[in-house]
């Protein structure tokens, strides 16, 4: 195993403890190394949002809301609607989060969820076109971390997908005068794929999934891997300092496929999402 950057004494003591548990196939909170925390998904709890979901993964709680607006398409994609993802690590979620505009952690979270949705092919953006080159739907997918007990990545994507899958978007139509107007009608987004991610932590040569906070603080390194249901890897982000031994990559990939598939099944069952 490569020499990881030197850690402080308190970190080393906790890491030793967790490592010894992992060697016996155990975790601090009683989980197996490859066991994700219980996932609960509730959708539609924010009525004023066009779609919303509250997801808890163990002690980590994420709220995602979606608002749709009408705007102009990107010049190079005139027939496509668009979406943007934002994430805020709210100060009520953790003493380590501070008020203010998103810092690098919030920006990284938003961009990883964005790439997972985009490259995972979750949305058919051409279906979000009203008038080609002029008017399209723009979806604002906003993530709020409400309670932080480690790993805000995986539940954020679960919540974003659940909110999109159950969203009712106000329909805009071209009126007789050629103007685009909001109607009383609403429509559902037909998801074209269901991407999920899993966060994998590494201590020495051992792997664990979905780290809770005490584990996250002492990992050698961690990464987030996303897949779609067709067997593709759709996003990867090494999201902490440290060395990933090249020899572990095959085990990491294997574990990522297994766990993202498990989370996908949970998401489909508990949020009642129709299969794409």
């Amino acid at each position: 195993m490569p020499m990881q950057p030197k850690k402080s004494l308190t970190v080393r003591i906790m890491q030793d403890k967790i490592y010894r548990l992992l060697q016996q196939g155990k975790r601090l909170d009683g989980r197996r190394p490859d066991e994700v925390r219980p996932v609960r998904i509730e959708t539609g709890l924010v009525e004023k949002a066009d779609g919303s979901a509250l997801v808890s993964m163990g002690g980590t709680k994420i709220l995602v809301g979606i608002k749709a607006e009408v705007g102009t398409p990107y010049p190079d994609r005139p027939k496509e609607g668009s979406f943007t993802v934002n994430a805020e690590l709210l100060p009520l979620a953790s003493t380590t989060f501070e008020p203010g505009p998103p810092d690098e952690r919030g920006i990284e979270l938003a961009r990883v969820v964005d790439r997972s949705l985009r490259e995972g092919g979750a949305l058919d953006l051409e279906k979000l076109c009203i008038i080609p080159g002029e008017k399209v739907y723009i979806l604002f997918i906003d993530i709020y971390v409400l309670d932080y007990d480690g790993n805000y990545y995986d539940p954020s994507l679960l919540a974003a997908v659940a909110a999109l899958a159950t969203a009712k978007i106000p329909r805009y139509e071209v009126g007789e005068d050629g103007k685009v107007e909001k109607t009383e009608e609403r429509f559902s987004l037909q998801l074209t794929a269901i991407p999920t991610t899993i966060t994998i932590g590494i201590i020495k040569e051992l792997l664990l999934v979905d780290p809770q906070i005490e584990e996250e603080n002492v990992l050698d390194v961690s990464l987030v891997v996303g897949t779609d249901e067709k067997g593709n890897i759709v996003s990867i982000q090494k999201n902490s300092p440290g060395l990933i031994p090249i020899g572990l990559m095959d085990r990491i990939t294997e574990l990522a496929y297994e766990k993202t598939e498990e989370l996908r099944r949970k998401l489909i069952e508990s949020a009642g999402i129709p299969l794409p």
């Binding site: 490259e119 092919g121 982000q237 090494k238 031994p245």
Partner: peptide, 11 residues
């Protein structure tokens, strides 16, 4: 023998 940065944007 280690990876220090790894990202994937794509499929």
């Amino acid at each position: 023998n280690s990876i220090v940065l790894l990202q994937l944007n794509g499929r």
